[in-house]
Design a protein around this nucleic acid. Structure first.
Lengths: 238, 238
DNA sequence: TAGTGGTCTAGACCACCCG
DNA sequence: GGGTGGTCTAGACCACTAG
């Protein structure tokens, strides 16, 4: 384990178990340097990550304050998979794999997914049930040659768990888009929708590996009244 | 101007005007050190910011690649105000101030806004017109003592511009939430909605200053087919 | 005025990628 | 094996906050 990770996890623990309470100051950087026997740069690397995650706010001339709203801040932002989300929120749900097949990208799919024409991909369609109702419909396209041995069972559990822990694939970043789309035939067929609803929430993502190549396109379609998206955002200075 | 900002702006410019093309490598950190006559830590500080903004992807043992999807990546994420968004997207629009008043937080508002009971706030209701149609309804509550001299005219232009450039207020971070809400009476009265629509998109934000105190609560309500939210997200290693 | 975080330097060793 | 980014050190000066 790297030194800055040690410091990060230790401080994160102290914030989460309230050893340092909300609106209180962390020890100063110089004190942390002594306490962890590290250089100031290393301590600052750990503090930077806590700040990015919205756990602390640094103030010049004063110190690092623990942010009060951490109780509000649950992690749908960043890049979080359904399975992780389910675990962190603690509700019961199940996944049904509707379609699991290999196909080749045609012109129409190429425009939508950003995969090159002719690329071999897995095409996966899954529904997510909460309390027996299908409330989310996920359509995934995943580069075939990255995961040729994928199985129906693996994707029924968690796609990301399989890719990261079984295959050691380095998922790096994504471009996401949220829009409100009209319900289509597939939505109507697969989801338990309110008959008065005309729309679903669509979250479309292009997901890239560490080498900046695209490896996944997803369209996740949610029943409107079951959808919530939260994020912690910092103001960009220009 | 700080040295790392110089380097940041220079590299940002070279990426945006295609001096370094997509999927190509930036000069190595050591080359940048020589070129800018800076230490490696300073160069790395600039590169870190480019990486956070989704302009480059760093790869150990290889270099920093310019990310191809920058054309897709427009800045609704982070903390961006309507006025800035309008400017960056280039469409024509206007703002109408419906309500501009001072009021005191009661129990119900305290729960919703997170302002303490009895806090004095500005209450501002604005509609945003595109092509003559009211498509967004913004309701703002802003801590009164931070901006006691605010005027109706200032908020008709841009609230954030006024607060940051006129008052030098240090807006720092926000907790945001996107949900699909049922249309209420105020929405019906102020927005030009499709008569078949039952929902609006609601973006609720708690906005905090650098000292971690709350100074603004906003509920921004959008006509469903005019709404789009995009973000660049990085996978969090756990 | 003492202490804080922000910026910057010059050096070092490592793991990793690629030819 | 040579070059890359990742981690870490020991120092320095500055701007800012607070008592």
């Amino acid at each position: 384990m790297k030194k800055y990770e040690m410091i990060l996890y230790d401080l994160e623990g102290k914030i989460k178990n309230k050893t340092v309470k909300e609106n209180e100051l962390l020890p100063s950087e110089n004190e942390l340097v002594k306490h962890y026997d590290a250089s100031r740069a290393t301590v600052r690397q750990a503090l930077k990550i806590l700040e990015e995650r919205g756990l602390i706010q640094k103030q010049k001339g004063r110190g690092s304050v623990v942010i009060a709203s951490s109780k509000l801040n649950f992690p749908i932002s960043g890049l979080t998979s359904y399975k992780e989300l389910q675990a962190s929120l603690g509700f019961e749900s199940s996944t049904h794999v509707v379609t699991f097949e290999k196909l080749i990208i045609d012109q129409e799919l190429a425009n939508q997914t950003l995969f090159k024409l002719g690329t071999e991909v897995w095409h996966i369609l899954r529904t997510r049930q909460i309390n027996g109702k299908a409330v989310v419909l996920d359509r995934d396209f995943i580069k075939y040659d990255i995961a040729p041995d994928m199985t129906r069972e693996a994707v029924a559990d968690s796609l990301y768990h399989y890719l990261e822990n079984q295959l050691n694939i380095d998922i790096s970043f994504a471009q996401k888009e949220i829009t409100i789309d009209f319900i289509n035939d597939e939505d109507k067929k697969r989801l338990d929708l309110n008959p008065l609803d005309r729309h679903v929430v669509s979250v479309k993502s292009h997901v890239f590996l560490n080498d900046a190549t695209i490896f996944q396109y997803t369209d996740s379609r949610h029943q409107v009244d079951k959808f919530q998206f939260t994020e912690f955002a910092r103001r960009q200075k220009r």
